[in-house]
Design a protein around this nucleic acid. Structure first.
Lengths: 217, 217
DNA sequence: CCGCCCATGGGTGCCGGCACCCATTTCCGG
DNA sequence: CCGGAAATGGGTGCCGGCACCCATGGGCGG
């Protein structure tokens, strides 16, 4: 035994951080050693503190929890990552897995489940809430049945830039002016986003961007 | 002195409730006597427990925190109400005042501020974060300068029904079919919503509905 | 080196959002 | 009892979202 697990906690609401910290610090085998208010701060603090486990909210300013998870699992392969989110959403659940997360926990769960998720992550076991496991199995069976998979290419930087502007309510004309490109190119990016994310219109893109923490509602 | 202030805590995330409860219960003059996961449950528990103070998150299922606040201040005039929200948004701030709230606290604040807001409410003093005070003063001066005020009629039940459906991504045609009314009437309700809320299009209506907790993103 | 993805841009056409005009019925409160 | 608000519905017209078609140039990896 080498002392309690050292945890980095990232959430954009100080009140939530404080509460979660109280929950975790009351466990003898868990201790929060750093708190970050956004994804970029989380990466900087992870570098400085070298924690054993990072708990990342998805919806955060600057870098979202998923973006931070991708970067962290790249630069610190030994770090365990728990994704903590408000939304029971398959899209993000699968993105979290691809981003290298060891666990996926909803904010609607009880405090015991969060503690257990931390312990599971420290044992390098995955922790998923029941609905996520169901989704995972169903997806696995789907892929096995269809016999093929396209890994659903991630959206590009340019597309994310356009996505943010769409979700903020800008028209294609406005976005074209802001990015110094043609309206038709904005149309093209929007169409690609809709196709890649499996959504229908800019309203659904907006909801996606809000869930992802790319914009504030 | 009659013992600690008895608090009802309403938030749809169990983890957040647990954390806030730990913060409040560690103060000798504050004690959480009931937790609710939605607005309707908050009203039922307030009737049963007769707390001194209700802390209501805005974004909750069934009844939002603002709707619950309106009902609670009607049926239990002595109850103090604190609105707790993720969003620094003037619209909701003014609605909270009209709904009878004694205070308005952001989730991004530190735990000390929440405790102080509770104590201020118990002394029947208002508690507003600095940005809200600025908005309040500016609005007051605006009204004084223009010499008149229209109290900005609240949206009606029917309008809220349409608002939810719009925010869920339904077209006017679909909404008309769902509510057994004409497309033109849906257009009319949408136009009234846009005008009353000072918004521009259905995308902004969607963001409003999400902030208000009327729908999940 | 060839193919794929990315970013760029153009044309056409349908449909729906939204603005502005109009009217009727019901209901409630001063 | 009268005025106003809520809910209903209709017509017209512009513009933008979105789908489908098309092409080109640069970069990167098999």
């Amino acid at each position: 035994m080498t002392g309690p697990a050292r945890i980095l906690l990232a959430d954009d609401h100080a009140l939530v951080r404080r509460g979660v910290r109280l929950i975790l610090d009351s466990e003898p085998d868990l201790t929060v050693v750093a708190e970050a208010g956004d994804g970029a701060e989380a990466i900087a603090l992870a570098r400085a503190e070298q924690p054993d486990l990072a708990i990342l909210d998805i919806a955060m300013p600057r870098l979202t929890g998923l973006q931070a998870a991708r970067e962290l699992s790249r630069i610190m392969p030994g770090l365990r990552i728990l994704i903590l989110t408000m939304y029971d959403n398959e899209q993000f659940f699968f993105e979290a897995l691809r981003a290298g997360a060891n666990g996926y926990v909803l904010k609607s769960v009880a405090d015991r489940d969060l503690v257990e998720a931390c312990r599971a992550a420290m044992r390098d076991e995955p922790f998923l809430y029941p609905g996520a496991i169901t989704a995972l199995i169903r997806d696995y069976l789907d892929r096995a049945a269809r016999g093929q998979d396209q890994p659903a290419r991630a959206i590009t930087e340019r597309e994310e830039e356009v996505l943010k502007l769409i979700a903020e309510g800008h028209s294609a004309k406005e976005i074209a002016r802001l990015l110094f490109i043609s309206v038709k190119t904005v149309d093209r990016h929007r169409a690609n986003l809709l196709q890649k994310l499996g959504l229908r219109d800019r309203l659904e893109l907006t909801r996606y961007a809000i869930r992802a923490g790319l914009i504030e509602p």
